[in-house]
Design a protein around this nucleic acid. Structure first.
Lengths: 341, 341
DNA sequence: ATGAAAGCGCTAACAT
DNA sequence: ATGTTAGCGCTTTCAT
């Protein structure tokens, strides 16, 4: 057992030292109005003298709030957490909370044990709200939290008619733009690398690919589409090799993530194809400044900063019970042209 | 305000429904001994019927513990979090806690504001202990926590005489082994890439480099040593370019991290050097299965799994106030030979 | 503007 | 084995 050391000063001792009532001390530490300036100073001095720190458990119990929110990564494969997409989201969420008194707690949920433990933690009132990243279609966590009445915001959605509040990028539109760009460049044999199909985001990006082809009256061939197991570089490599075997005349590839795209580039070069001369490549861009796409290719940029900010805004609104205009927000992507393919 | 919805059943209601006293219900949910099996079942049924979940704030307040520990990343540059070294540690720590009732909370401390907020969170009793990653020499956080009497375990140390409990790899020894191996291979003009010198780990690794040279009676030349700003690949690239400019006859490089080593490889190849024929490279290995060193080179492997496990063990011991044999643990590294350089 | 007092829901010590 | 009770330290009315 750890916790606050015995002998930790309490609000009551502060009150005694300052010669005021408990209520007054409470008002001071909560910066509530209606305290004379001289009293406030006296209390503050007592606080400093004693090194008083509020007991958060007591505050939670009496105040019915935790002043904390959880950002949950529900991914059995924890290494995904190192992916730029997630680190950027974490950064954006952290930034959005920096001016609030709310403590951000990142948590991993990799197994049913951990899921159970987290639900008890959250339902137990240790957080006021939950942000969910990387949710797979069959994940029960969002519903468990919703049923418990906990304010919850997801990054992405599990399906087309999602009940939980979410923020998503316009994956379909972004993919459509990308493939339309490839078509405009004269490409016709365009391969598509989706991510894992149990994630709606992968379905959307593939749908965008199809829609672009259909609009241009180009035949959609299933043999040009490969759904990977995940969004990793290695996955991109394997899929590309497969694609090249099936379609030696491949002249473009649309990849559903930038790590996939990196794998595509590697595999293409190994196979002796020039990029973008022989094969043009476009991927979604997770916008990680430290690991720029190399070489710079045209990418579909997701507004990660805005996604994180929006998630926080929606969550705080739900926590305040204030009216929310939209419970579903879909943010536009941007096609960043960086080649002449 | 969020938190447990109004109308959430309390322990008292469970007791009433089950027709027992509060104490008994408490015993049941805490799996305490001394409850008849039939009573236990009756209580359990009431719990299920009501969908009761314990209020963790009340439990903390009465029980003087939080059943949670924080794993803190104190790095102004949050992107570091994506580095394999950290994701592996997070995984190992998560694994070590998976069979305990303790919830793991990851937190970012990037600024003074966040440091302050976290200290209040921790001192406020929301966690029973703190694990610290990526601590820089002048970081005041460890002392703030120690002064507050919070069980704390650091990954690495801030200096040679660290007061806070820590777990570290044998950086000096590992570096010595690496450089000794290079010398045994006949290399004499060996460059050294340290990390940021405000981190003790970087100093140790450079010391190991020096010691190996001294033991072999090879002159230590300052011009062969470059301290980077951080442990990133980009940093490794720049440093290597500098090294090559100063020493065209460079025949080996010792890098203080695997990401640095990756940068070294890139820069060497760009400069037309063959690896390991012209220049042998050895780096510390953060052992990330998903991003293997490419090409496989000899590396100094740190026992990350064991580091994480040990940190957790020490922390739990400190939390239990049970006697701890060592407050400082230094784990051996292993030289993994993968080339003929 | 400030003090007093009633809980918040639980654990743990003490009875029985 | 189980019921009873006294807090844990705070927020929040309600008086004054």
């Amino acid at each position: 057992m750890g916790r606050q050391r015995p002998g930790t000063p309490t609000l009551e001792e502060v009150a005694a030292l300052a010669g005021v009532g408990r209520g007054t001390v409470s008002r001071v530490i909560n910066k509530a109005a209606g305290v004379r300036d001289s009293t406030r100073r006296a209390v503050q001095q007592a606080i400093d003298e004693l090194g008083y720190v509020p007991n958060l458990a007591a505050r939670s119990l009496a105040g019915h709030r935790a002043d904390a929110v959880a950002l949950v990564m529900t991914e059995p494969d924890w290494r995904q957490f190192g992916e730029p997409f997630f680190t950027e989201i974490v950064r954006a969420v952290g930034d959005a909370l920096t001016d609030t008194p709310v403590q951000l707690l990142l948590t991993l949920v990799r197994s049913d044990t951990e899921r159970q433990r987290f639900v008890e933690y959250a339902r137990g009132g240790r957080v006021d709200g939950v942000l969910l990243m990387s949710v797979h279609a069959q994940d029960p966590l969002p519903d468990m939290l919703a049923k418990a009445g906990l304010p919850t915001v997801m990054l992405g959605r599990r399906s087309g008619d999602e009940s939980v509040t979410y923020v998503d990028a316009d994956n379909t539109g972004g993919a459509r733009d990308a493939v339309t760009h490839l078509l405009a460049g004269g490409r016709r044999t365009i391969g598509a690398l989706g991510g894992p199909l149990d994630m709606y985001v992968a379905q959307c990006r593939l749908r965008g690919y199809r829609e672009a082809l259909e609009r241009a009256d180009v035949e959609v061939r299933d043999s040009l589409i490969v759904a990977g197991e995940d969004f990793t570089e290695e996955s991109g490599r394997r899929a590309t090799a497969e694609l090249l075997a099936r379609h030696p005349d491949l002249d473009a590839v649309f990849a559903a993530s930038d790590t996939l795209a990196a794998g595509v580039l590697g595999a293409l070069r190994e196979a002796g194809r020039r990029v973008p001369e022989d094969v043009a490549v476009i991927g979604f861009d997770d916008f990680h400044p430290a690991r720029p796409m190399e070489p710079p290719l045209t990418t579909v940029r997701q507004p990660l900063e805005e996604i994180g900010r929006t998630m926080v805004r929606l969550l705080l609104e739900e926590m305040e019970d204030s009216p929310v205009a939209w419970r579903h927000v879909i943010l536009r992507t941007e096609l960043v042209l960086r080649d002449s393919a």
